[in-house]
Write a protein that binds this DNA or RNA. Structure first.
Lengths: 126, 126
DNA sequence: GCTATCAGTTAACTTCAGGTAACTAGTTAC
DNA sequence: GTAACTAGTTACCTGAAGTTAACTGATAGC
C-alpha cells in the first residue's frame, strides 16, 4: 500500500476479496433449483416439507434433481433431513437456523423479479 | 380465499408467484459470471470498465464468456456499451441506473460469502 | 517490416448441469 | 396378487456452459 499508484478506484485487494466471497455464495446457492428450494422451505412449516410435497410445490423439478440439491444443501448446513416414523416412511426437510441467513437474499430476488416484470411491461408500452 | 381449507401454511398462489419471480431473477442473473461482472462494474468508475480491464479484474473469465455475458446483460438493460473514440479503440461498459437495483443483492451475497467462510472455520475448530 | 495494443470472433473441443424414464424397497389397501 | 403410496436410485442422453487457441482488423511504436 502507501506509495502504490492505484489507477482504478477503490482498493484492489478488497475488490478481489469481494469477488471471491461472491464466488463462494454462487457455488453454494447457484444453479437452477437451490434458491427455489430454500424459498419453498422458508414458506412452509416443517410438517409440510416432505420430499413429495416439495417436488409438487416446485414446478418442474425431477426427483433426481431434488434429491441431489437437498443433499448439497444438507452438506452445507442449510437444511436438515429427518426420517419420520410413519407408514409409508416420510422424510422431513427443514431449513436450519443458519440456512435462514439466506432469507434476505431470496426476499430481494423475489422483489427484484417482481419489479423486473413491471419494468418489462413498461418497456413494451413506451 | 375465505372458506378454502389451506392445508399448507401461507397462501398457495402467492408462493408460486414468489417462486416464479425468483425464476426470472435467476434466469437473468444466474450462472457463473453475471453477478461477478455486475459487482466488478459497481466497484469501478466507467473509465476503468474497458473490456480488457474487466477480463483482467475477474479472474479466470475468457474473452468469449465475457463478451457473451456482457451481451446478455446489455439485452436485459443492466449495462451499457459505449465505443470510445480512442486509438486503439476501447469499449466502455457501465452499469445502468436500473442495473444498480441489483447492488443490494450482490452486497448480501458478498456478506453471506464472507460470513460463510467464518462459519466453515468455526465448524473445523469445533 | 515487426511487434504490440484493444475488442472481440470463430472453431473445435470437453465438461457438466439437468432431463427422462425405468427401477428399487418397504408398506398398505383392495 | 396387484396397485399405490412413500423416498429415492440408476443409467442414459442432450444441450448448454465453458475452455483453449488461433485469428481479424484497426492503430501505434520501434
Amino acid at each position: 500500500m502507501g506509495t502504490v499508484k492505484n489507477k482504478g478506484n477503490v482498493r484492489e485487494a478488497s475488490c478481489q476479496e469481494e469477488l471471491t466471497a461472491m464466488r463462494d455464495s454462487i457455488e453454494i446457492l447457484g444453479g437452477k433449483w437451490k434458491l427455489l428450494i430454500m424459498r419453498y422451505l422458508t414458506n412452509r412449516t416443517a410438517e409440510h416439507n416432505h420430499f413429495k410435497k416439495i417436488q409438487r410445490g416446485i414446478n418442474g423439478i425431477s426427483a433426481k434433481m431434488l434429491a441431489k440439491e437437498l443433499k448439497d444443501l444438507e452438506v452445507n448446513m442449510m437444511v436438515t433431513r429427518t426420517i419420520q416414523d410413519t407408514r409409508p416412511v416420510t422424510v422431513e426437510y427443514a431449513i436450519t437456523e443458519y440456512g435462514k441467513s439466506i432469507i434476505p437474499v431470496t426476499d430481494m430476488l423475489v422483489q427484484w423479479g417482481l419489479n423486473h416484470r413491471e419494468k418489462i411491461k413498461e418497456e413494451v408500452l413506451v
